[in-house]
Amino acid sequence: MAKKNEELDPETLALINWCIEVEGFLVAGGATLEQAQEHIEEQVEWFTDQFYDGLTPEQAGKAALNGH
């Protein structure tokens, strides 16, 4: 029997979608998709703080590319 997917709360879903957008800016800045995903995973606390501080995905991507 297939396990039912857990529903994500709207805030968590918004954060995930925001990170997906950041990923695109990291790739546009020269990272591979794998590098972008790895960086976000490794720096998840920093990216979460940027999300709650109100940065746009573009602003967070630029900060990450500049070595935040």
Rank of each mutant, 00 (worst) to 15 (best):
T48L: 07
L26S: 01
Q35P: 03
A63V: 02
V27S: 01
G54I: 09
E45F: 13
G54R: 07
I20W: 07
E11I: 12
F51C: 02
M1A: 06
T48M: 08
T56K: 05
G29Y: 12
Y52E: 01
E58C: 07
G30E: 11
V27D: 01
E23A: 06
P57N: 00
P57I: 00
T56S: 13
L65V: 01
T32R: 03
E42M: 04
E45D: 10
E23R: 11
L65Y: 01
E6F: 11
E42F: 05
A36Q: 02
V44G: 00
E6L: 14
L13N: 07
E6T: 12
G30Y: 09
Q35D: 11
H68F: 10
A14D: 06
Q59L: 10
V44I: 07
E7R: 14
A64Y: 03
T12P: 02
E21T: 09
N66H: 06
K3T: 07
L13T: 04
E45L: 12
E6Q: 14
M1P: 01
I16L: 15
N5H: 09
E45Y: 12
G54M: 08
A2M: 03
M1G: 10
A63M: 09
L55C: 15
A63Y: 05
T48H: 07
N5E: 11
A60S: 08
N66T: 06
F51Q: 00
W18Q: 02
F25T: 04
L26V: 00
E58G: 06
F51A: 04
E7P: 05
K3Q: 08
G29P: 08
T48I: 06
A60W: 03
E7Y: 13
T48C: 07
G67T: 04
V22K: 02
W46G: 05
Q50G: 14
Q59R: 11
I40P: 01
Q50P: 12
T56V: 04
G61R: 00
L55M: 15
G29R: 10
A2N: 03
T32V: 05
E42T: 08
E42S: 04
A14R: 11
N5G: 10
H68E: 09
A60E: 04
N5C: 08
I20T: 08
H68C: 03
I20V: 11
T56I: 10
G24E: 12
P57Q: 00
L13R: 08
A14G: 08
E42D: 02
A28R: 09
I20A: 10
K3G: 05
Q43H: 13
E6W: 12
E38G: 01
L13Y: 08
G54A: 08
K3V: 11
I40V: 04
K4R: 13
D53A: 15
K3F: 07
G29V: 11
E58M: 12
G61N: 00
A14H: 05
P10Q: 12
H39R: 04
A64Q: 02
Q35H: 03
W18S: 04
D9Y: 13
A31Y: 15
D49W: 13
Y52S: 00
V27G: 01
D9M: 10
N17L: 14
G54D: 07
E45S: 12
N17K: 13
L55P: 13
E6M: 14
C19R: 07
N66V: 06
F47M: 05
Q50L: 15
T12N: 09
I40D: 00
D53W: 15
A64W: 04
G67Q: 03
Q37Y: 03
L26K: 00
